[in-house]
Amino acid sequence: MHYHTPASFEEAVRIAASAGGVTRFLAGGTDVLVQLRAGAVTPDDLIDLKHIPGVHDIAATPQGGWRIGVAVSGAELGEHAALKRDWPGVVEAMELVGSTQVQGRATLTGNLCNGSPAADSVPALVAAGARVAVTGPQGSREMAVEQVPTGPGKTALGPGDLITAITLPPRGAGGGDAYQRFIPRTEMDIAVVGCAVNLTLEGDVITQARVALGAVAPTVMLVPEAAEAIISTTLDSDALEALVKVARSAARPISDKRGTAEFRTDIAGVLARRVAELAYARAKGRAK
């Protein structure tokens, strides 16, 4: 295995493009090293992105959103008060990934690129309307986060493509987001179901919403019907009941060692309701 420390994304792309065998990009390494250890993936070329200027930065965008470097750890996200104030759901989702030790290394970009349908941060990013900047042999482009994962362990990134930053839109007034997951223990498990809700209020009425579910389909999915169920409502009991129903019918889970399909479907509804209530309370300024 060859270890590279490029000083720019362009150089990283060049190394990747010229590599013949298996290539992996390394930021936090919390997935790459586990695969390496298990013998599941032993890259021929490992390209460490942490020496590229700017990858450790969390920066405000001119539009009022946030640009998050690819090597920013979960712990650093959690310590960024202004980001956490704007997007508590995104930050809390990332903070659920792994242990405190894993938080010291794991990144949003890595969580996204691992392609897991159960990745905690991804539903929150999708609900937030986050976008990624991609650089590759064909040049640079932007895409919505929900376009990145294409199946378990698979992404829309081509050979040599790499994400250079994740951008969160401006929060705006009357907004709130939240993420929760269900796991058997209190910590340290992979989500059996995850749900993120991002909404905007005018007065008590929801004017915009995005709802995303994790671990109930081959990829994290945006559920527009779930958003429609609560838009133009005050999240009253009828709206919540409709949301629960829609979330459950949108879920297409499998049964595996972490939960049965029936259980996941059930919990998708329970979480959608709980998370929507929390996001709503945050938008009203009633919850942190």
Binding site: Y3, V34, R37, T100, R105
Partner: peptide, 22 residues
């Protein structure tokens, strides 16, 4: 695999699992 914490060290003052750092 970063699941037990027995290899906890501080890297530039930040708590990490030494098994998940090269």
């Amino acid at each position: 695999t970063g699941d037990c914490g027995a290899c906890s060290v501080l890297l530039d003052g930040r708590l990490v699992s030494a098994c998940l750092v090269l």
